[in-house]
Amino acid sequence: MTFDFVEPVVFAVLSIGVIAGGVAVVMLNRITAAALLMAFTFLSMAGMFVLLGAETIAAFQVLIYVGAITVLILYGVMFTKFSTSPRALFFQKQTPLAAVFVAAVAVPIVIVATLSFTGAPPRPGGGDLPALATSVFTDFAFPFEIASVLLLAAMVGAIVLTKRDDQEEAAARRRR
């Protein structure tokens, strides 16, 4: 008995999940629903990484995207009041224009990409962590340090942006 049919089936299910989630994020009016479906897309994407044999990347994907970024975005949704009327969420004039533009660029690229990369399957098997660690800490040591500087800049910038407002608000409260 062989289980060769499993991989294409799993791939098909995951790709439907990824694309349906992505389309839902674009189409849905309710932001919380969009955020949750974005998390769903990320989870399906993690499944694809597992299918490709990149288990470490899949774990990082869930850790960063589902665990951190989605929560951050949900926080952002909660701190802003959004309009619930459906038409308020879309540009009115640009919509057909954008659709035509994206379709014109996307369709050829998708077709070319699909047809040009046939051939041997990716190598599953997992165990990509040692290779990853070696690359990051030897060849990519400098980008690695730059990454920390980038994170520091993001941290400082975001704190400045949110803190300034807190002080202003506190000052306003004191004046009142």
Partner: peptide, 10 residues
């Protein structure tokens, strides 16, 4: 039967 690379890229 396995999934070709093109499918992932698509």
């Amino acid at each position: 039967m396995t999934v070709p690379l093109g499918a992932y890229i698509a």
